[in-house]
Amino acid sequence: MADETPIFATVQQLIASEAPGALATIIDGGNEASPNGAKLLVRPDTEPMGSLGHPDLDRVVIRDALGELASGTSGVRHYGATGEARQDDLSIFIESFAPPPQMLIFGAVDFTAALSRVAKVLGYRVTVCDARPVFATPVRFPRADEVVVDWPHRLLEKVGDDLGPRDVICVLTHDPKFDVPAVISALKTDAGYIGAMGSRRTTEDRNRRLIEEGVNPDDLTRIMAPIGLDLGGRTPEETAISICAEIIAMRAGRLAPSLRDSEGDIHR
């Protein structure tokens, strides 16, 4: 391996700046040209650093590492000595350093402050957006990474294309004037979770307005509304927990019953 190349220093910078990258390490089956511990650091649109010992192997692993990075996953892959598929001479661990997932919270209300706190604990990059400058201030949402004074649908016109399955949109405005255009824009993104706050009556009213605005009724099933799990909480903090718990359960494809009332392994 290229000892003179400060790969770890670059990994540190990458993680600190929340930039994307993937580190491939030979962990088993190494040989003289490609010893165990050899490393290749792959970043989008940047020259790779280091080498696994053979240009063909590097080329195949770069492709696979970019794939792991896109899905934010890490794992072991097996290759022949020069990168051949369906051989298992070399075991290579590809570790993704994906930027944190995003949570966009629309509506600068008390629930927003609590939700931004809980979301930060879970590792989200949090943006709070509200069109009312009096309410959308960094002082009210000190834990948010960004507070944007704008209409939610206008923010989504700018950043919506960047959202993917790991990202979350929470519409807490519960004012049809704001949340109907926000939900319509949210449905155009690939965000993995779209939730909208409001009573059952608000939810029915919003669904009616969304259909009037031309939203396909099938798309309404993407919206988690009323937002959150049925935990019975009342305070903004308890509500934030129920929203985040629902996000985790949805990502994992679970119905989120209590562990006591379900069966099987806890970690699946």
Binding site: I27, G75, E95
Partner: peptide, 15 residues
């Protein structure tokens, strides 16, 4: 020390 693979029920993911 890095977790590289998990079989069955394991508390921490690879990485």
């Amino acid at each position: 020390a890095r977790v590289v693979d998990v079989e069955g029920s394991g508390p921490r993911l690879p990485g």
